[in-house]
Nucleic acid binder design. Sequence first.
RNA 1: GGCCCCGUCGUCUAGCGGCCUAGGACUCUGGCUUCUCAAGCCAGCUACGAGGGUUCGAAUCCCUUCGGGGCUACCA
Length: 486
Amino acid sequence: MPTNRPVRVRFAPSPTGDLHVGNIRTALFDWAYARHTGGTFIFRIEDTDTDRVTDEYIAAALDTLRWLGLNWDEGPEVGGEYGPYLQSQRLDIYAEYAAKFLAQGDAYYCYCSAEELEARREAQRAANVAPGYDGKCRSLSAEEVSAFVALGRKPVVRMRMPDGETTFTDLIRGEVTFDHNFVPDFVLARGDGSPLYTLAVAVDDVLMKVTHVLRGEDLLSSTPRQIRVYQAMGLTPEEYPAFAHLPFVMGQDNAKLSKRNGEVSIAWYRDAGYLPEAICNYLALLGWSPGDDREDVSREEIAELFTVERVHSSPARFDMKKLEAINGDKIRALELDDLLARVTPFLHRDGVIEGTAAELAVVKLTLPLIQERIATLAEVSAMVKFLFVKEFAIEADSLPKVSDEQSQSVLQVALSTLESVADWKHADIEAALRTALIDGLALKPRIAFGAIRIAVTGSHISPPLFESMELLGRERSMARIAGAVK
RNA sequence: GGCCCCGUCGUCUAGCGGCCUAGGACUCUGGCUUCUCAAGCCAGCUACGAGGGUUCGAAUCCCUUCGGGGCUACCA
């Protein structure tokens, strides 16, 4: 375990799809640990699986991390003295180490074909033996090798696992031991010479001087293999990273998060109107807690308070309801101009506004009315739409509530009452309508104002009525009420 | 199957031998407030998986068991 080395932490996703909440929780903890210790946060792309990683996913990963405010000190676009930070650009380095391990006798060429390996694994399973490489090519004679070569076989480079066991101290789980009987010889490089994760990750972590590896629990059982590579590199535990395996973030259905779930990609949350600071806040609470009862934490506070010791060892279920609650709190805490800036793209996207200065001015006046009524930015469109629609129409499910006799008379009285409102301000509008309808007709407020609300906004759910009417203006308000009268 | 990890309210968690007849948050239920919906405020429901130990004393330590998960690839 590293001692006295400056802390260097990396987040190293393999972008085979959009980054999901589990990835981001890991990124957040990596970032927080680096920031908390005053260390360096490195962003590295593990794109050794060229069949599955695409440039679009890589670009999306950068974008997502930046959007969340998890800025990296070294990595793509910012560079750093240990780059490049895309593994696809470091292939020669891995090849060099593979050759070195081969020369040292730590690794060997394995000529077994995929079909042969699969057949043998099948046999092992049938015989109820632990499946894994059986060591067939561990000590091939020169004749056997030339026979394979004559067949045109391209060998993989396979690491030799010596007898014994590997023990390491996981910062979250304590001491973990793996018997090598259950860690078979593993492949470092494919037949075409390209590296596998186990080789690339270990080499890069060392070369990039990473001191702490905080990653998903699914990689726990690959750690002895990684340590084996360190040993082949001639390193002692003080010289290679310490490990901390983070618990899983599980889906609502209690299954491991997967792209199947749909609502797991961070891009989805962004489009759904969740704030990056809310996502960070919520994710920080998944598998970690500040230790006291506080649940409202900013990114800065997370960085300040984060310690690996406080990370849970058990998995956490992702709860959209709680994220929503936190998101609502964060929205309510936003300054008006900030909220306006964040909401505008959604209004534009939803076709509610075109983005003119006049429209934005109206939106800005409306925002204070709805700020405490929304849990996501995306909800704003539906709430302010009535102020901008060209073709006004009452929602189908609200329509019956203005068609009855009582509502109709309310609307007629309202119409004549509003004629005489001199100053079209919400307080005056309210006073006039209260006098006429509540006092005059002895109606319950919810009945009287309910009908007007539907006539004016088109829905039985809306921002406060009188303010809405003021914003809409006398002309349109009254025209809509008139339009609702049969 | 084997190896490894994990197990406190429905969910996220506090708890690291006595402060726990288990605290907070979200959800849910009821109420207050109220021009709708929210927000806000108040109240309530609900948990230490089970069984053995250790100890004066266990949610906290040990063992077993049950349950969940991961890995078992020329994926990461």
